[in-house]
Simulated assay, not measured.
Amino acid sequence: MYFATILTLLPLVLASPLVPRQSGNTRITSAYLNKLYEWRPDMPYSDGWGEVSAVPTSKAPNKVHSLIAYKLEPSDFGKTCNLRFDKPSISTGGLTFSIYDFKPTSGKTYDPKKACWNNKTGTRGQKFVTYKAGGKSNLAYSMPCPKDWINLELAPEGDVNMQWPQFDPIGLWLEVVQTSKPASAPAPAPKTIRIDTADQVQTREASGENGHGSMQFGEITRAAPGQTVTTLIAFVMPKEDYTKRKCVIMFGKASEATGSKTFLLYDFEPENGTNIFQSWRMSWKFKRGTRKGLRATHTVGSNKVTEFPCPKPGKGLNYELAPTAEKVSIKWNSTKDKEGLWMEVV
Rank of each mutant, 00 (worst) to 15 (best):
Y100A: 10
Y100P: 11
D101T: 02
F102H: 11
F102L: 11
F102M: 11
K103N: 14
P104W: 05
S106L: 04
S106M: 02
G107C: 09
T109F: 08
Y110T: 06
K113A: 14
W117V: 07
N118F: 01
N118K: 12
N118M: 04
N118R: 10
N119F: 14
T121E: 12
G122C: 10
R124I: 15
G125H: 07
F128K: 13
V129H: 01
V129E: 06
V129Q: 07
K132L: 04
G134D: 07
K136G: 02
S137A: 04
S137P: 01
N138R: 00
N138H: 05
Y141T: 07
Y141F: 14
S142K: 15
S142T: 15
M143I: 09
M143G: 01
K147E: 15
L152P: 03
A155Q: 06
P156S: 09
P156I: 07
D159I: 14
M162K: 02
M162D: 09
M162A: 10
Q163I: 13
W164D: 08
W164F: 09
P165T: 06
P169I: 01
P169S: 04
P169Y: 00
I170F: 10
W173A: 05
W173K: 12
V176C: 08
V176I: 15
Q178H: 03
Q178M: 13
T179H: 12
S180V: 03
K181R: 10
K181N: 04
K181A: 10
A185K: 01
P186N: 03
A187W: 03
P188K: 03
A189N: 05
P190Y: 06
T192F: 03
T192W: 04
T192Y: 00
R194G: 04
I195D: 07
D196P: 04
D196Y: 05
D196N: 07
D196Q: 06
T197F: 07
A198Y: 08
A198E: 10
Q202T: 09
T203P: 02
T203G: 06
T203K: 01
R204K: 13
S207G: 00
G208I: 09
H212W: 09
H212R: 10
G213S: 13
M215K: 12
Q216N: 13
G218L: 06
I220F: 11
A224R: 11
A224W: 06
A224G: 05
T228E: 07
V229R: 02
T230E: 13
T231E: 00
I233C: 08
I233V: 15
A234K: 04
V236G: 04
M237Q: 11
M237I: 08
M237D: 11
